[in-house]
């Protein structure tokens, strides 16, 4: 059974068709990219998967379970984590809290537990803390655990956002333009980080990215969309030679 199976996914906003008949099947531990010109509907696909939008047509199945009608936090509970195009950290809370809060779906204690500080509460909070510290340590963020995200450099904020997504212990990680706004040194770091995550955790990573360097050096499979429609799907070499892709990116006349 595949991890993610999307069939005939379509999303319309009024007259605009943002995503048109999108299909994909992802297995375990894949590293896939979704590329395409601006406004091609890439982020909409991610929003549909994470439950932020409901599809107009088509189905999304996660580990065989249809996600139709689920609210975003429920989808996350099924093991989908994501980052955002513009960084969306909780800016007034320190990094550690950011990572703790993302584990909300497996709190495992009730409000009463929380008031009475029962044994269950203590155990669960400890587990949450342990996971958070482990991740911070592994991702080299231990020193800024008590910093507010807005005081951190942009590149570090990206790392924190990825760490927050990883604290969900996802089986599918969606990265929405992780390299946007990073300088070349940070991009190198990001490539290393993503590769490390892919090697260390049992997770399928699916990223939207414009920087071809990142895409080509990381991904084994690339899907190209334009105007909501898939125009190509294949490994990096195939995509580089694909005429439809070149046309979409560079226009007709250049060739």
């Amino acid at each position: 059974m595949s991890l993610l199976e999307i069939k005939g996914l379509t999303r319309r906003f009024g007259g605009l068709i943002a995503v048109n008949d999108f299909n994909i099947e992802l297995g375990e531990r894949e590293l896939v990219a979704l590329i395409g010109p601006n406004g091609a509907g890439k982020t909409t696909v991610f929003n549909l998967i994470s439950g932020f939008y409901q599809p107009s047509e088509g189905s999304i199945r996660l580990k065989g379970k249809d996600t139709k009608g689920l609210r975003p936090h429920q989808v996350t509970g099924l093991g989908v984590a994501r980052t955002f195009q513009g960084i969306r950290l909780w800016s007034e809370m320190h990094v550690l809290d950011n990572i703790r809060i993302a584990q909300h779906y497996r709190l495992g204690y009730s409000l009463v537990d929380c008031f009475l500080r029962t044994k269950n509460y203590m155990l669960r909070e400890k587990a949450i803390d342990d996971i958070a510290w482990e991740l911070l340590e592994a991702m080299g963020l231990k020193d800024c655990a008590y910093e507010l995200p807005r005081n951190l450099p942009y590149g570090v904020q990206r790392r924190v956002e990825i760490a927050r997504a990883m604290s969900v212990k996802p089986s599918l990680l969606l990265l929405d333009e992780p390299a946007a706004g990073l300088n070349s040194a940070d991009v190198e770091g990001l490539i290393k980080l993503v590769r490390w995550i892919h090697d260390t955790f049992p997770v399928t990573i699916w990223m939207i990215e414009h920087q071809m360097k990142v895409v080509m050096s990381l991904c084994s499979r690339i899907k190209v969309v334009d105007f909501g429609t898939t125009i190509a799907d294949g490994n990096p070499e195939e995509i580089q030679k694909n005429h439809a892709v070149i046309k979409a990116y560079l226009g007709d006349d250049t060739i």
């Binding site: 439950g51 975003p72 984590a81 909780w90 993302a102 909300h104």
Partner: peptide, 9 residues
């Protein structure tokens, strides 16, 4: 939005 997507009900 981040809260909802990062599993906060």
């Amino acid at each position: 939005i981040a809260a909802e997507i990062m599993s906060v009900d």
